[in-house]
């Protein structure tokens, strides 16, 4: 019975935010805007190049009590951060 309930998972949306080439505080602000638009359970995916934002977006995620699903960085400095609302 509980398994059946677990299968009834509501559809999860993925919201993409492209902040490549943007500087302080735009990636942080756009992340927050996207998280406000997202429904609980939705995934917010941010792509950017501003180095400090790669460190600071996870700080915001922690402060907001949300889960950080992963951080990836390419050799050219472009990073991707995934957050679960």
């Amino acid at each position: 019975m509980s398994c059946e309930k677990e299968r009834e998972v509501p559809s999860v949306a993925e919201i993409k935010v492209d902040c490549r080439g943007e500087t302080c505080p735009v990636p942080l602000v756009e992340t927050r805007k996207a998280l406000r638009r997202a429904q609980p359970g939705d995934i917010v995916k941010i792509v950017g190049t501003h180095p400090s934002s790669k460190k600071e977006i996870p700080m915001a995620v922690e402060a907001l009590g949300l889960s950080l699903l992963g951080i990836e960085e390419r050799e050219d400095g472009e990073w991707t951060i995934k957050i679960k609302r």
Binding site: C24, P25, L28, V29, R32, E56, M59, A60, A63
Partner: peptide, 11 residues
């Protein structure tokens, strides 16, 4: 505005 927006963004 940068400080204000940063604070709001961090909850």
């Amino acid at each position: 505005f940068i400080i204000g927006n940063g604070a709001l963004s961090m909850g």
